[in-house]
Amino acid sequence: MRLSSTLLACALAAAPFCASAQVSININVPSIVAVAPPAPRYEPVPPARVGYVWVPGVWQYRHDAYAWQQGYWQPARPDYVYAPGRWVRAEGGWRWVEPEWKAAKYKEPKGHRHDHGDYDGDHYHCPPGQAKKGRC
C-alpha cells in the first residue's frame, strides 16, 4: 500500500509538467500587397570594401505602409553571389522575394582539366553529386 501511495503522489506531482508541454509551428506564407511599392530611391553605392557585398536599399511593407530601408554592407560568402530581394507582381498584387546567396557559376578555361570532372573542350562536366559536396 505504501508503494502505491508513493507512486500515486509522484504521478500527481509530475502531471502539471506533462500538461504544460506545448508544440509550436510557424508557417511563413508570403503575403500579397495590393499597392505597388514606390520607385526605388537613389542611393550612391559607397566605395567597395574587401570581403563585403553592398545590399541596396529597398521598400519594406510594414504596418500597412511602405518604409524605406537603407542599403548596408554584408559579409561576402566565398563562391557565392548575392541576389538582392525584390518586389514581383503576383496574384493581382505585389509579393516580396527574399534576398538569397546563389552559387557562383563559372566556366573552366578552354583546355583546363579539373581533378573532379571532365572537360570536353566546350563544356565542363561535374560528376553527379559532386557539386553539392563542393568538389566542382
Score class of each variant (00 low, 15 high):
Met1Ile: 12
Met1Leu: 07
Arg2Asn: 14
Ser4Pro: 00
Leu8Lys: 07
Ala9Tyr: 08
Cys10Met: 12
Ala11Thr: 10
Ala13His: 00
Ala14Pro: 02
Ala14His: 05
Phe17Arg: 03
Cys18Tyr: 09
Ala19Tyr: 02
Ser20Tyr: 02
Ala21Pro: 03
Ala21Met: 09
Ile25Asn: 13
Ile25Arg: 14
Asn26His: 13
Ile27Asp: 14
Val29Ile: 14
Ile32Gly: 09
Pro37Asp: 10
Pro38Tyr: 02
Pro38Phe: 01
Pro38Asp: 12
Ala39Asp: 13
Pro47Glu: 11
Arg49Val: 04
Gly51Asn: 11
Tyr52Ser: 07
Val53Phe: 02
Trp54Val: 04
Pro56His: 04
Trp59Lys: 04
Tyr61Trp: 03
His63Asn: 15
Tyr66Ser: 00
Ala67Phe: 13
Ala67Arg: 14
Trp68Leu: 04
Trp68Glu: 05
Trp68Pro: 02
Trp68Ala: 05
Gln69Thr: 08
Gln70Asn: 14
Tyr72Met: 05
Tyr72Pro: 00
Trp73Gln: 03
Trp73Arg: 02
Gln74Trp: 01
Pro75Ile: 01
Pro75Gly: 07
Ala76Gln: 00
Arg77Ser: 04
Arg77Lys: 02
Tyr80Asn: 11
Tyr80Val: 05
Pro84Ser: 10
Arg86Pro: 08
Glu91Asn: 10
Glu91Ser: 07
Gly92Ile: 05
Gly92Lys: 05
Gly93Met: 02
Gly93Asn: 03
Trp94Lys: 04
Arg95Cys: 09
Trp96Glu: 03
Val97Trp: 06
Val97Asn: 01
Glu98Gly: 08
Tyr106Gln: 15
Tyr106Phe: 15
Lys107Tyr: 09
Glu108Pro: 04
Pro109Gly: 08
Pro109Gln: 01
Lys110Glu: 10
Lys110Ser: 09
Arg113Leu: 15
Asp115Lys: 13
His116Phe: 11
His116Asp: 12
Gly117Cys: 01
Asp118Ile: 09
Tyr119Thr: 13
Asp120Thr: 04
Asp120Ser: 07
Tyr124Ile: 08
Tyr124Trp: 12
His125Tyr: 15
His125Ile: 11
Cys126Asp: 04
Cys126Gln: 00
Pro127Ile: 00
Pro128Trp: 01
Gln130Trp: 15
Ala131Asn: 14
Ala131Tyr: 08
Lys132Trp: 13
Lys133Trp: 00
Lys133Arg: 11
Arg135Ala: 02
Cys136Phe: 09
